[in-house]
Design a protein around this nucleic acid. Structure first.
Lengths: 206, 206
DNA sequence: GGATGTGAATGTCTTCACAGCT
DNA sequence: AGCTGTGAAGACATTCACATCC
């Protein structure tokens, strides 16, 4: 299969969001132009992105909203649920945990971990917070697909090493640090400081 | 001046992080190769990125860590403090507020807002949480440079419109929604759902 | 000798523009 | 006539490779 760029995947997610709104609003058909307007792209871009995966439109008419929703969900792997673990039960972890939009999109949090004995044993919406030492066992038992890392920067690499050893292949990291993972593991970073510094650059350059 | 890509700016931030660690560890000189290894790039990339802004190295030797830290800080606008407002005093807002690493990097939170009367009036580390209605006045009084939006998706566009009207030109948005802002305003998005969906795509494609 | 700075070459992503289908 | 699907062109970003300087 062709190599798909990260930005193309990101745009597909955005298209999907808008398409789901449109579907809920009863819209049946949509053109690449309309989709582009709301997805933050050009119409050619939309068509190119979709054409990477197939021919979903009708010439002269556009795309069936319903059908395109189904197609993109399949492409992105959102036609199933993913089993997620949250590592780090601090303020950020808590905010992520209670952000129930994930659940709605098929990301189920199955386990929560923390290294702080003061937090271990607490009950989080039916889940018990487990100590880091139990990670290997539980990640395997729960067949976790994706781990979210929300620990301080200096603890992140150790945590990630554990996660990798437990066989988890996808990691979303919130710690502001560059982590090393094996080739076979996919790592994404959400780095708020980096974003702020980007804004700083933009403000500075005027 | 040349146009600088967003990814180049992001890499500069990463280089800076490592350089500051190295500086703290007493390292005086560093080569593009070493910097690349830790910054997640190639040596040619490092040199190219830096050359966009000047010639900071010595041939045969490398770069002075101390000097390069100073240069990159200047380039990114981190040689000053930026005045930040936080809009949304929910769990995410609270997590961001207590994340004191921002402060250390020159991003000072000067005001907090929320639309919930139950939260308005609370004291957050010396700051009073103000109602949305006061945003226009306070953003101007406090000369806020950057607004962080941490409100639910359906409230985000309204909040952003207010922020823009108050003259703030840089916004970091955490709501999972595509916002419209005028050309002159810089908007960055941190969209956790999008990142998870990206990981889903990666897992799915095997 | 060793590492920078940078044109040239390569690779990747986006936009153009139009043939082809409905 | 209208809108998709897609090669070709163009823009942009990365990597190569080497002359240049410390």
């Amino acid at each position: 299969m062709k190599k798909i760029s990260e930005s193309a995947v990101r745009r597909l997610s955005l298209y999907l969001r808008f398409l789901q709104e449109a579907d809920a609003a009863g819209v049946e058909t949509i053109s690449s132009g309309e989709l582009a307007r709301r997805g933050g792209a050009t119409s050619a871009q939309v068509r190119k992105d979709l054409s990477l995966f197939g021919s979903f439109g009708k010439r002269g008419t556009g795309y069936s909203v319903r059908e395109l929703v189904r197609e993109i969900r399949t492409i992105l792997g959102l036609d199933r649920t993913w089993r997620v673990a949250l590592v780090g039960a601090g303020k950020l972890g808590s905010a992520l945990f209670s952000y129930r939009d994930f659940e709605a999109r098929g990301f189920q949090i199955r386990a929560v971990f923390d290294s702080d004995p003061g937090k271990v044993g607490a009950s989080w919406g039916g889940l018990t917070v487990f100590p880091d030492e139990e990670m290997d066992r539980i990640l395997r038992e729960e067949k976790v697909d994706i781990a979210i890392v929300a620990v301080p920067a200096d603890a992140a690499q150790g945590v990630v090493d554990r996660i990798v050893r437990a066989g988890v292949r996808s990691i979303l990291n919130f710690a502001p640090v560059r982590l090393r993972v094996p080739e076979a593991v996919t790592l994404r970073n959400v780095d708020v400081t980096l974003e702020l510094e980007g804004l700083s650059f933009g403000l500075n350059a005027r």
